[in-house]
Amino acid sequence: MKKWVPTVIFLAVAVVLIVLAIVFLPVSKSVWVWIAALLTLAIFSILYRDNPIYRIAEHIFVGLSLGYGLAMIWHLALWQIALRPLFVEGRFILIIPIAIGLLYFTRLIPKVSWLVRIPISIALGLGSGIAIPLIFQATIFEQTKASLVLPEMFAPGNPWPGIWAIILIIGIVTTLAYFFFSRKEKSVLSPVSKVGIIFIMLGFGATFGLTVMSRVSLLIGRVQFLLREWLGIIAQ
């Protein structure tokens, strides 16, 4: 069988089903709903196998996302922060970041291509300098503070919050011990890291379960869209 035959059969079946739907069902009259529905079906066609319809939808998505990104970057960063204040309000200091940003384009000129390192180094320097104290404050201190075992957690008659807090701190310490790779294979930390792997596996399992459910929830959303907004089979 030729490579394109399954795709043609798939398309033919899809067209027949759509025609039947138009004739017998209260389908949507909105062009945009039709576009959304056909693109949804095009993406679902990957469940059969890789095919041109899927690839077209995939490339449309990539192009649209980049176009959207460009429009957003232009309006929210380049125009709003740099060009409008420079040309409309006369804030000439903004020539500096614009000039630094333009240095990215020296990458296209081999003789001066090393200048591209300047915007990269400025971005990395500023980013790293901002990140270090921020990580300490927002992550390390806050997460450590939230993990403290406090006496009021052991209220008379309900000591469970305190017990869970102790288990939590054991889990954090043992998880960190598991990721301490520079220890020797049979060090004091080995049994501790074995406890750590139990917590890690429970955590990964829970995360996996949540991920599956979020994907299933998206799937339900798409099927509901097809049946409700597009075909009108289920009530609005």
Partner: peptide, 13 residues
């Protein structure tokens, strides 16, 4: 509890 412990450990690391 266990998931938070693992997540927090990984986050701190």
């Amino acid at each position: 509890v266990p998931n938070m412990a693992a997540k927090r450990g990984i986050l701190l690391g």
